[in-house]
Design a protein around this nucleic acid. Structure first.
Length: 885
RNA sequence: GCCGGAGUGGCGAAAUUGGUAUACGCACUAGACUCAAAAUCUAGCGGGCUUUACGCUCAUGUCGGUUCGAGUCCGACCUCCGGCACCA
C-alpha cells in the first residue's frame, strides 16, 4: 500500500490479478446456492456512455455482494451486435459491417475491463457471429415446426425515391431521412411469430414474478397485451338498393359493453373493411370519395400524438339493432381501425368518449342508457350530455333489461345474444403477432428457400447456419443488400434439388436479445442453443438489470421465448427472470451552438430560467444563442461526458461509486460531473485512515488475534463499534431491497465516525485498536461492491496478504445487534401534531414512561397548561403526541 | 393521442414505508495551516420574522380531502420523462 491513493496503479494491478487468477469465472457447483446476475447486453456502438456505466456498476455491485455472501455467481456479458448502425456505417463510410462491429466490440470490451466490472469473460458472446445466430435460425425452424412461425402480408414504410424500406425511426415525420421524400406504406410478405398464442399465459404467469418485478412494468405489459372480455354482435344490414340481398348481409362488431347496446346510434366501419370495399359501387360518389380519402390518410405514416380529427360519412345503408329492432345508419369513420377487433364498432356516444366526439361533430343522436349506480332518482336529465359516461352503472331506456347493473347485464345480454344466434361472448387482445422480417443485411438470415415447385421450404437443420456473405453492395438505395448478392440468393431447393432462391430478409435484432442469456450458460455448444442441464442449473436469472425503456417489448418477447423453449423441453421453468430492476435513463443536458455548428460544454453556457426553474433559453458566454436539450444518452451522437476520460481523471472506483451514489437506480439521472470529487475524497479519506493506522500502530498486524470479550472499550470506541454494526445492518437491508445509493452515504458516515474517534494510533489501547480494525474490515468489505480495486488494496493492508478478498474467503460482515443497540433515543414530543420539544429517553422505555417524560418537559407544560388532554398517541422509540383542547 | 412513471434546499438527493422533513454528498461562505496556492482540517449553510431563543412561523410541483399527525394515502390539475410494435 502506497502512502497516496493512486487509482490507475492499483486498478491495473487488481485487474491483472483477477484475470490471472480467473477470480470471476463461474463453474456450476451444487454445494453452494447459485446467483445469476444479468445486465442487458449493450449494442457495440464503439463507445461506452454513462448509461452503460450505471447499468454495469449496479450489476457488479450486486454480484460482489452475493459473492461475499457465499453465492456461486454467474455474471456474464456479450454484444447485441446486429442492427442498423453497422449497416449505416457501411453505407456512409464504405466499411464492412463485420469489421466495424468487431472493432467496436474490441474498444468497448477494453472500456468495460478498465472499469473493472467482474465479468466472466470466458463466456462472452456476440449476436453477429455464426456460432450464435445459427441458433436464431434453429429456433426459427423449431417454431416453424410448432406452427408458431408463419408468413403473411403486412405493411412496411416505403420510400418511393430510394425504393427501399425504412424503419419507423428513418421514416419519422413521414419523410425519408435520406432524401426527404414523402414516405408511403407498402404491403409485403413477411415472417411472423405467434406470440398471441401465449397471450393468456403471459398474463397469468405474472403471478410468478409479481414479487420480483416492478409493478409498473407488469402494468405496462398487461395493458400492452390488452386482454378484453366482450362479445361479438351481428347487426343485419338493410339496404334498399340491394333488394333481396338484405337478409344475407351482416356486420359483426366487437364490444366490451354489450350492456350499452340500446344506446347505439350507428355502426361505424373502417374504410378498409371488406363490407365497405364490396359495397363500394352501391354508395354515392361522395361516400366513395370519403372512403378513398380516409384510406389515403391511413396510408401515411404518422407520428405519435398526431391524432387526426374525427371524420366520416353516412353510407346511406342501415343496420338493425338485434336487441331493439331499431334501424340505425351505417357510417364510415376514420377512427375505426381494421386491425383491431372486427373493424367495425357499434357507436354508443353517451358512454364512449370517441363515439361521443364523433356524434357531436356530426350531430348524431346521443341516448343515455346507463346511469351511475349511486343515483337514486334520475334527476332532470340534461338535454345534451356534456361528456360521455363510460363507467358501469344501472341500465335505463333498455326495455326489459332496465334496472340491472352493467356487471350483471353484460353476462345476461351476451347469453341472450348467443341463444338467439346473433352474438357470441369472446376475448380479444390488443397484442399482435411479432413481425420478425427486416429488409436488411446486418441480421441473421431467415433460413427459408423459395422453390418454384415446392414453395417456401425450410433449410434443413444440418445445413445451419445460413451464413451472411462476406460483403454486399451497400448503397442505401433499392432492395436489401443481401438480395443483390447472387451467390447468396441462388441455391438449390432442399426438397426437389431444383433451383431455389433464399429468403433475403433477416431477423429483427429483438430475436437475439430474447435468448442470449440462456446461451451464456453454455456459450460454446455447437449442437444445441445450450445444454438443458446446465441451463436449468443457472437459470432463471436471479436479478435482471436494464433500462426502463425495455419494460414492454424486449421483456415481453423474452418471456414468450422462454415459454416456447419450455414447450420444446429446453428449460423447466415458465419465467426467465425472478427479479427485475429497471434503471432510469441517464441523460445529458446538451447545448448546441448554431453559430459554431457544434455541441459546446456546459461550463461555457449561461442558462436563463424562469422562477419555476424552467429553461427559457441559453446563451454562450460570448452572447451567441445555443439550443438546450436533455438527451437520452446513446440515442443521439451526443453521449455527454466520455466515461473513458472520467476513468483516467478520477479512477474507475470513483466513477462507479459516484454513478451509484448520485441517484436511486430507478430514477432518471441527469449526468453532471460536479460531485464526483466527493467520491474521490471519500475513497482518499478511507485510504489515509487505514494507511495511518497500519504504519503508525505497532500492533496493527496482529490486531485480529484478540477477542472483544476481554477488552475494555472507551466511550469513543464503544460508539464507533455501535456505528459499525448499525452501518452493517443498514447496508445489508439496503442491498436486500435493491437500494444502492444510500449504502454509499452510510459508508461515508462510518468513515466520518472513524475520524471522530480521534485517537492517535500510537496512543491507542487494545480496545481502540479492536474497534478501529473492526470498522476498517467492515468498511472495506462493504465498499467492495462499489470500489473493488481500492477495497482489494485496503484488504491487503488489513490482512497483510495480496491473496484477494474472494480467494481469502472473506464474507460480508454480519451485524451484532447487541453492539448496534442504542442506549438512549430522542423522542419527539408534539402538541396537536406540532413538534414542541425533544426528550431523551432510555431506548427500552414503554409507552407510560414516554408519556410521563413528555409531560414532565417544561415547554410541553407551557403548551398544555390549563387545557384538557383529550388523547395521547405514543409511538415507542419515535414520538409522543398530546391532543389538547 | 394511448399506456406507464417522476416532481423535496442553489444542485444530486435522504426520510426506518403514515410519526422529529432536508441524512450523505456537491457548490458556496468564514476560519485554521501556508510566504502563497493546492490539499487537508474546523465551523456555517431552506425561506421569513422577532424579543437572536434549546424562539415563532412558512415550506416537499399546484389546489382540495382523509387523519391526532401527510413528502408518504385519496381526488383534480400543471410540468417533465420512458414506451407505443422496423432504434436497440
Amino acid at each position: 500500500m502506497d502512502e497516496k491513493y493512486f487509482a490507475q496503479k492499483i486498478e491495473r494491478k487488481w485487474q491483472r490479478l483477477w484475470r490471472e487468477r480467473g477470480t470471476f469465472e463461474a463453474v456450476p457447483d451444487e454445494t453452494r446456492p447459485k446467483f445469476y446476475c444479468l445486465e442487458m447486453l449493450p449494442y457495440p456502438s464503439g463507445k461506452l456512455h454513462m448509461g452503460h456505466v450505471r447499468n454495469y456498476s449496479i450489476g457488479d455491485a450486486l454480484s460482489w455482494y452475493k459473492r461475499l455472501q457465499g453465492f456461486n455467481v454467474l455474471h456474464p456479458i456479450g454484444w447485441d451486435s446486429f442492427g442498423q448502425p453497422a449497416e449505416q456505417a457501411a453505407i456512409k463510410q464504405g466499411v464492412n459491417p463485420r469489421d466495424w462491429t468487431e472493432e467496436n466490440i474490441e474498444q468497448m470490451r477494453g472500456q468495460l475491463q478498465s472499469l473493472g466490472i467482474s465479468y466472466d469473460w470466458s463466456r462472452e458472446i456476440a449476436a453477429h457471429r455464426p456460432d450464435f445466430y445459427k441458433f436464431d435460425q434453429w429456433f426459427f425452424l423449431k417454431m416453424l415446426e410448432m406452427g408458431l412461425a408463419y408468413r403473411k402480408n403486412s405493411e412496411v414504410n416505403w420510400c418511393p425515391h430510394c425504393e427501399t424500406t425504412l424503419s419507423n425511426e428513418q421514416a419519422s415525420g413521414g419523410i425519408c431521412w435520406r432524401c426527404g421524400t414523402q414516405v408511403e406504406k407498402q404491403m409485403r410478405a413477411q415472417w411472423f411469430v405467434r406470440i398471441t398464442k401465449y397471450a393468456d399465459e403471459l398474463l397469468e404467469d405474472m403471478e410468478q414474478i409479481e414479487d420480483g418485478w416492478p409493478e409498473r412494468v407488469l402494468t405496462m405489459q398487461r395493458n400492452w397485451i390488452g386482454r378484453s372480455k366482450g362479445a361479438f354482435v351481428e347487426f343485419k344490414v338493410k339496404n334498399s338498393k340491394l333488394g333481396d340481398k338484405d337478409a344475407e348481409q351482416r356486420l359483426k362488431v366487437f364490444t366490451t359493453r354489450i350492456d350499452t347496446i340500446y344506446g347505439v346510434n350507428s355502426i361505424v366501419v373502417a374504410a378498409e373493411h371488406p363490407f365497405i370495399q364490396e359495397n363500394l359501387d352501391e354508395f354515392s360518389g361522395e361516400v366513395q370519395d370519403k372512403v378513398d380519402e380516409i384510406i389515403a390518410e391511413h396510408a401515411k405514416p404518422k407520428d405519435y400524438g398526431e391524432e387526426a380529427e374525427k371524420d366520416g360519412i353516412d353510407t346511406g345503408m342501415k343496420a338493425i339493432n338485434p336487441f331493439s329492432g331499431e334501424e340505425i345508419p351505417i357510417w364510415v369513420g376514420n377512427y375505426v381501425m381494421m386491425g383491431y377487433g372486427t373493424g367495425a364498432v357499434m357507436s354508443v356516444p353517451a358512454h364512449d368518449e370517441r363515439d361521443f366526439e364523433f356524434a357531436q361533430k356530426f350531430g348524431l343522436p346521443i341516448r343515455t342508457v346507463i346511469k351511475p349506480a349511486g343515483e337514486t332518482e334520475a334527476e332532470e336529465e340534461p338535454e345534451v350530455a356534456a361528456a360521455a359516461f363510460s363507467e358501469k352503472g344501472i341500465l335505463i331506456n333498455s326495455d326489459s333489461w332496465n334496472g340491472k347493473h352493467s356487471k350483471e347485464a353484460i353476462g345476461a345480454m351476451t347469453a341472450y345474444a348467443e341463444t338467439n344466434g346473433f352474438g357470441k361472448g369472446a376475448v380479444t387482445y390488443r397484442l399482435r403477432d411479432w413481425g420478425i422480417s427486416r429488409q436488411r443485411f446486418w441480421g441473421a438470415p431467415i433460413p427459408i428457400i423459395y422453390c418454384e415447385s415446392c414453395g417456401a421450404v425450410p433449410v434443413p437443420f444440418d445445413q445451419l447456419p445460413v451464413e451472411l456473405p462476406e460483403s454486399a453492395p451497400f448503397t442505401g438505395i433499392g432492395e436489401s443488400p443481401l438480395a443483390k448478392v447472387d451467390e447468396f440468393v441462388n441455391t438449390t431447393c432442399p426438397k426437389c434439388d431444383g433451383p431455389g432462391k433464399r429468403e433475403t430478409d433477416t431477423m429483427d435484432t429483438f430475436v437475439d436479445s430474447t435468448w442470449y442469456y440462456f446461451r451464456y450458460t453454455d456459450p460454446k455448444n455447437t449442437e444445441q442453443p445450450f445444454d438443458q442441464k446446465t441451463a436449468n442449473y443457472w437459470l432463471p436469472v436471479d436479478q435482471y438489470i436494464g433500462g426502463i425503456d425495455h419494460a414492454v417489448m424486449h421483456l415481453l418477447y423474452t418471456r414468450f421465448w422462454t415459454k416456447m423453449m419450455r414447450d420444446i423441453d429446453l428449460v423447466e421453468f415458465d419465467e426467465p427472470a425472478s427479479n427485475l430492476l429497471t434503471q432510469g435513463m441517464v441523460v445529458a443536458e446538451s447545448f448546441y451552438s448554431k453559430e459554431k455548428e457544434s455541441y459546446v460544454v456546459p461550463d461555457d453556457v449561461v442558462i436563463e430560467r424562469d422562477e419555476t426553474g424552467k429553461v427559457l433559453g441559453a446563451k454562450l458566454k460570448d452572447g451567441s444563442d445555443v439550443r438546450v436539450a436533455v438527451e437520452k444518452m446513446g440515442k443521439s451522437k451526443l453521449n455527454g461526458v466520455d466515461p473513458n476520460d472520467m476513468i483516467s481523471i478520477y479512477g474507475a472506483d470513483a466513477v462507479r461509486t459516484f454513478s451509484m451514489f448520485a441517484a436511486p437506480v430507478e430514477n432518471e439521472l441527469v449526468w453532471q460531473e460536479t460531485g464526483i470529487d466527493g467520491a474521490v475524497r471519500f475513497l482518499q479519506r478511507v485510504w489515509r485512515f487505514i494507511y495511518k493506522w497500519k504504519t503508525e500502530n505497532e500492533n496493527w498486524a496482529n490486531g485480529d488475534s484478540r477477542d472483544s470479550v476481554d477488552l475494555e472499550f472507551s466511550g469513543g470506541a464503544k460508539k464507533l463499534r455501535q456505528k459499525t454494526h448499525q452501518t452493517i445492518r443498514r447496508i445489508t437491508d439496503n442491498f436486500e431491497s435493491g437500494q444502492f445509493n444510500t449504502p454509499v452515504a452510510a459508508l461515508m458516515e462510518l468513515s466520518n465516525a472513524m475520524y471522530d474517534l480521534n485517537v492517535e494510533p500510537k496512543q491507542a489501547n487494545a480496545g481502540d485498536l479492536f474497534a478501529v480494525r473492526e470498522a476498517c474490515r467492515s468498511l472495506t468489505l462493504m465498499l467492495t461492491p462499489y470500489a473493488p480495486h481500492v477495497s482489494e488494496e485496503l484488504w491487503e493492508a488489513i490482512t497483510g496478504s495480496d491473496a484477494g478478498i474472494l480467494e481469502s474467503a472473506a464474507e460480508f460482515p454480519i451485524a451484532d445487534e447487541d453492539v448496534a443497540k442504542e442506549d438512549e433515543v430522542e423522542i419527539a414530543v408534539q402538541v396537536n401534531g406540532k413538534l414542541r420539544a425533544r426528550v431523551i429517553a432510555p431506548a427500552d422505555s414503554d409507552k407510560e414512561k414516554l408519556q410521563e417524560l413528555a409531560m414532565e418537559d417544561g415547554k410541553i407544560q407551557e403548551y398544555t397548561n390549563g387545557k384538557e388532554i383529550v388523547k395521547v398517541i405514543v409511538v415507542p422509540g419515535r414520538l409522543v403526541n398530546l391532543v389538547v383542547k
